[in-house]
Design a protein around this nucleic acid. Structure first.
Length: 599
RNA sequence: CGGGAUGUAGCGCAGUUUGGUAGCGCGCCUGCUUUGGGAGCAGGAUGUCGUAGGUUCAAAUCCUGCCAUCCCGACCA
């Protein structure tokens, strides 16, 4: 491509809207342009990068026997009602855009395609002889993100590769799942990224095993806990650990103490001179279920620990049926405003005890009349603990389960793992924390969707049984930006060769010099002839501008037809390290071919 | 949805306190000079000052509503 003919505008100044380096650079280098909040145009350079990534994905997916297809983005609400996700996706998490057509039909704009693909499988997979199957597509997804940010990292419209496998049983699913895990590593390695695979929570999508592929970067939105031996890595939401041991309680007698102005664990411990590990903290949540019922949840957890909302959400989702509900819509810590809706009297916040009376709850149809009391495992073995008294300004000390307080029936693990906790697989090791960008996520869905939607097949015994499903996603546009986040310097982007928009840029320092122009032109044709992707900077600009632009847009190799021509050489500069060498004109093409082949 | 901020030329910003007919840098166009790391000089074009209403002789500036965008949080396969 001749740069004189290309629509490319590089910016000298950083647009104010961009916060992180990759977003700033993609804007400055003319790869993307913001059209609305979370909506971006992929300009010609960006589209080439995205296509390169897509191509690598295609090659690797096809190599596993997966088949590419393209599913509709507009999806009938009925499909989502069958799976039971219409409510959660349009109301609680509100992540799906929904539209109503002129026949008053409700449609969703696809944030993911489990429903569609399961409907297809239901119709076309009849026999075990057809299994396993793995279908994938690469296309735009829509999600009504509450707060889009960081350019392509969290957009409302983005490109994704999603694959769905159908297997006869759990074992076969595991095989496909681990094949996909290998394939993902190959894809990301080919893209030139350094990444980590971590255990993850499967969230609203459901299912059992799940792994995320994280590009480690300081600006990542996810937190990853890992051990240095490389044997354990997990998303913070999912991570497990051994909490620090509790200190012995300084109290041996049960009594109520005045503890004025100690609504937080920190102030309380300072006042009493005790360790937070001797305190039972009681956290109040309100859970909303899909029929509109509100359940108040009181979680007792050790004072030095925090509740992991994702783990708590999972516990509460499983309990939906206890309340005659299908799904948990939302979970939050009620503020004063929210409390007024159901509290019969003002709550002694900061001084709650595990036995907070149910009479604090107004008798209302849409509110469960009793607290759902949960104990985190960390409070199970505490002796002579300190906790609230349900009276502002007072705590009790020296309390014990079975004496002053009844241990809740439900003992659960809802504790958030922390950096420096001991590792479960090897308690001599401590967890470390890093930030990451989630570029891929694979799930073993099991029969959640096939069962809900009646996607069954006939097995060898002639029985109709539900298909076992897996799903496997890669954020293509996010991956592109994550790469920039990992590959840039003060001068701009430095793309890995495999996904760079062009492999080579020929810079003509002085376009008015006929010799320079002629040699550059010949070189351009020669490189094109051997199938290379080449930019020819034939713009009537000063050399400095061309060098700056070449660095900014990050083409891996730059050929300069300048002063080295006197010796019959072309200067070849490697973008990644700015190293430069003069190569005889007639050897340039073959040398570059070799370099690219070795990449 | 809660907290904070911003909206003036393609981009970055000043001007708003104290109302008086819209400015700077970069970019863009023309000419001359320059030509290996975002050139110099001279000339030029570009704005419903986010939007609607109000106050006023007069509004980018003051008042009210609305909209949009960004940041923090909540939220987020």
């Amino acid at each position: 491509m001749r740069m004189s003919q290309m629509l490319l505008q590089t910016l000298r100044e950083t647009p104010a809207e961009a916060e992180i380096p990759s977003h700033q650079l993609l804007l400055r280098a003319g790869y993307i342009r913001r059209i609305g909040s979370g909506l971006y145009a992929y300009l010609p350079l960006m589209w080439r990068v995205l296509n390169k990534i897509s191509q690598i994905i295609r090659e690797e997916m096809n190599a596993t026997g997966a088949q590419e297809c393209l599913l509709p983005q507009l999806q009938p609400s009925e499909l989502w009602q069958e799976s039971g996700r219409w409510e959660t996706y349009t109301k609680a998490e509100g992540i799906m855009f929904s539209v109503i057509d002129r026949q008053e039909r409700q449609l969703g704009l696809g944030p993911t395609h489990e429903e569609v693909i399961t409907a297809i499988a239901r119709d076309s997979i009849r026999s075990y002889r057809q299994l396993p199957q793995n279908l994938y597509q690469i296309q735009t997804k829509f999600r009504d993100e509450i707060r889009p940010r960081f350019g392509l990292m969290r957009g409302r419209e983005f490109i994704m590769k999603d694959a769905y496998s159908f297997n006869a049983d759990a074992e076969s699913l595991k095989e496909t799942y681990s094949l996909m895990a290998q394939t993902y590593e190959t894809i990301l390695r080919r893209c030139g990224l350094s990444f980590t695979a971590v255990e993850a929570d499967s969230g609203a999508i459901g299912g059992s095993a799940s792994q995320e592929y994280m590009v480690l970067a300081e600006t990542g939105e996810d937190e990853v806990l890992y051990t240095e031996d490389g044997k354990y890595a997990a998303n913070l939401e999912k991570a497990v650990s051994i909490p620090p041991d509790a200190d012995p309680s300084p109290f041996s007698q049960y009594e109520k103490r005045d503890t004025p102005n100690t609504p937080t664990i920190a102030t309380l411990c300072k006042f009493l001179g005790c360790s937070p590990t001797t305190v039972v903290k009681n956290v109040l949540y309100e859970a909303t279920y899909d029929n509109g019922k509100l359940v108040l949840v009181l979680v007792s957890i050790r004072g030095d620990q925090d509740v992991n909302d994702v783990k708590l959400t999972n516990v509460l989702s499983e309990m939906a049926s206890h309340y005659g509900e299908n799904a948990l819509l939302g979970l939050n810590v009620p503020d004063e405003q929210a409390q007024k809706k159901w509290a019969a009297q003002a709550l002694p916040l900061g001084y709650l005890a595990p036995d907070l009376g149910d009479d604090y709850i107004q008798s209302r149809k849409d509110v469960e009349p009793k607290f759902l009391r949960l104990a985190d495992e960390t409070v199970l073995n505490l002796k002579n603990f300190i906790t609230g008294s349900n009276e502002t300004g007072c705590h009790v000390v020296g309390a014990n389960w079975g004496d002053q307080f009844t241990l809740p029936d439900q003992v659960v693990d809802v504790r958030e793992a922390q950096a420096r906790d001991r590792a479960v697989h090897d308690p001599s090791q401590h967890l470390k924390m890093a930030r990451g960008i989630e570029v891929g996520h694979i799930f073993q869905l099991g029969t959640k969707y096939s069962q809900a939607m009646g996607a069954t097949y006939t097995n060898e015994q002639g029985e109709n049984v539900p298909l076992h499903m897996g799903c496997y996603g890669i954020g293509v546009s996010r991956l592109a930006q994550a790469t920039v986040e990992q590959c840039y310097d003060d001068d701009g982007i430095a793309w890995p060769v495999a996904i760079a928009p062009y492999q080579v840029i020929i810079t003509v320092p002085n376009i008015t010099d006929p010799q320079q122009a002629k040699i550059a032109e010949n070189l351009y044709q020669d490189l094109l002839n051997v199938g290379m992707e080449v930019l020819l900077d034939d713009r009537d600009e000063r050399a400095g501008v061309k060098f700056k632009d070449a660095d900014l847009i990050g083409i891996p190799y730059r050929l300069v037809t300048g002063r080295s021509l006197k010796e019959g050489n072309v200067e070849v500069v490697t973008r990644a390290d700015q190293s430069s060498q003069d190569i005889p004109l007639e050897e340039v093409v073959t040398t570059l071919q070799q370099w690219l082949a070795n990449k």
